[in-house]
């Protein structure tokens, strides 16, 4: 059985049909990227799976914990970096404090932020804040990690450091679903790519298959990136 199963998902906002019958699976250890033009429903799909929106119909089968990395980081400004990462595992998951702090320190080191545990989010660069938010998500020991355009709010020179972190996680076989506009990155890091347009999945397959697709909408979309 797949780790995550999405079946016949539909979602509208008023008269605006955002998701029209979306189905796909994610296997354990798989890296899936969702690409497509703005307004294609990518983010809404992620928000339905992570319970930030309620689907109108369809099924989402997933049994486990997940983490979500937001476009705008959404760190808690009044909590130190360490508290941002460790508070939910301690309070919500009721895990042992010392174990959580050790885990958080390990993750911060991995993110190259070992000297930042007492800093506050406003003292960090955008790239550093996003790395803290990835550490915060990872500290919950998620079975699957979702990314909602993780580099879209960053200056171009900072996107690389976030993409490298995600690549490193992929190398460790972390299960991830990534909504992104970074085409080259999606092509390099993903096992599977889903191309969405107008609320439907237009193409789905390996990066080679999707990027060499004959589908006109897919070609138009890629053309905008490679012209």
């Amino acid at each position: 059985m797949s780790l995550l199963e999405v079946k016949n998902l539909k979602k509208s906002f008023g008269d605006n049909v955002v998701l029209k019958d979306i189905s796909f699976n994610v296997e354990k250890g798989e890296v899936l990227s969702i690409i497509g033009p703005s307004g294609s429903g990518k983010s809404t799909l992620l928000r339905c799976i992570t319970d930030l929106e309620t689907e109108d119909s369809g099924e989402i089968n997933f049994d486990g914990t997940f983490g979500l990395v937001f476009q705008n980081f959404n760190l808690f400004p009044h909590h130190s970096v360490m508290k941002n990462i460790a508070n939910a595992p301690i309070r919500v998951q009721k895990r042992d404090k010392d174990e959580v702090y050790a885990h958080a320190k390990y993750l911060l080191k991995k993110m190259g932020l070992e000297d930042k545990e007492d800093a506050y989010p406003s003292e960090l660069s955008g790239g550093q804040q996003q790395r803290v938010s990835i550490a915060r998500a990872l500290c919950m020991n998620p079975d699957i990690l979702f990314f909602d355009e993780p580099t879209s709010a960053l200056d171009p020179e900072l996107t690389g450091e976030i993409l490298q972190v995600i690549k490193d996680l992929a190398a460790e076989r972390m299960t991830m679903v990534i909504v992104t506009h970074e085409m080259n990155f999606a092509r390099n890091v993903s096992d599977t790519i889903i191309f969405m347009d107008g609320g439907v999945i237009v193409e789905q397959g390996s990066p080679e298959e999707v990027f060499s697709s004959d589908n006109q909408r897919m070609k138009d979309f890629l053309g905008k990136f490679y012209e």
């Binding site: 319970d51 937001f70 919500v92 915060r136």
Partner: peptide
Amino acid sequence: PNGQYEAAQVLGYNRLETFFI
């Protein structure tokens, strides 16, 4: 910002914890 509520929800804080913490 709404993102604060969403981040709290995703981390599993309940409504009271979200408000007070």
